[in-house]
Amino acid sequence: MLSRTADNLYWLARYVERAEYLARILEVTQRLATLPIAYGGETNEWESAVATAGCTGAFSTQYSEANEETVTEFLCFSTANPSSIRNCFELARTNARAVRTALTMEMWDAINGTWLQLKRFGNGPTSREEFMRFLRWVQEASLRFDGRAYRTMLRNDAYWFSRLGLYQERADNTARILDVKFHLLLPTNERIGGPLDYFQWAAILRSVSALTAYHWVYKESVKPWLIADLLILKDEMPRSLASCYGNLVQNLDYIAQAYGRQGPAQRQARAIRTRLQNRRMEEIFQQGLHEFIGEFISSNNRLDSAITEQYLM
């Protein structure tokens, strides 16, 4: 397979996944912003959304204040933000067009249809209700694309590279969403473990569709270390870092087997997976969750470079 084709498939999956992630962040933010305490101006959920999306730098060059209006525009519809939802879908389709023949008709339909529908939303929704509908639509578009890829693609290198893109992006996103709490301010009169703290953690769980899963697994009230445990170490949780790395390792192995050769990408992915398997939550919290996440994101990026060098260029 052409390296560029693999690269297009990889990024197609990444951009679709990223659009979904942005929609999820914005949903949490919207929820947090509806709390009565948010009106007092002591919280900073909109700023935190930008930080969680990983684009504080780009944001601050264009806007002086992070509020509902500016952040929504920047993360959803801005053409100036290379990672806005609009640009994610735009880039996803550009990548898809370049590899039309490596996609199934169903996948092309999904991404092309999304791109066509995106135009309907123009420069942004006019009401909060419409905005929530937009966010749901983005997530559904991603689910539709992912489902069609899963159901219709031949299991060969084209599929494996697109899965690599998906899990790379998802691992990065899960790590960042866990970091939301680090960026969120807890007003001085609120205590850790208090109602607002609880609400913030629950919102995070909800954003990754894991609140129900949490109760199934732990049968306990929402506790930070258990949430971290669920999203970092639990193999059975499909968005967890452990699960993402299980999938990354597996897909890289398929590729290595098919090509009869393995390289740095396989070795790095296995090493990260092993570290995740051998970690215990206490250690992570001792080290500091924020620091752990920072390290993870860097090593995840290094794997991305390794995959790129080994296969995509």
Binding site: M1, L2, S3, R4, T5, A6, T101, D157, F161, I255, Y259, R261, Y311, L312, M313
Partner: peptide, 22 residues
């Protein structure tokens, strides 16, 4: 057959190659 763009090809010792994942 592969649909290539110029950047997928390179020439070494007067022979043309395409960059593939293998």
């Amino acid at each position: 057959v592969e649909l290539v763009e110029g950047r997928d090809l390179f020439v070494k010792d007067e022979t043309v190659y395409m960059r593939t994942t293998q």
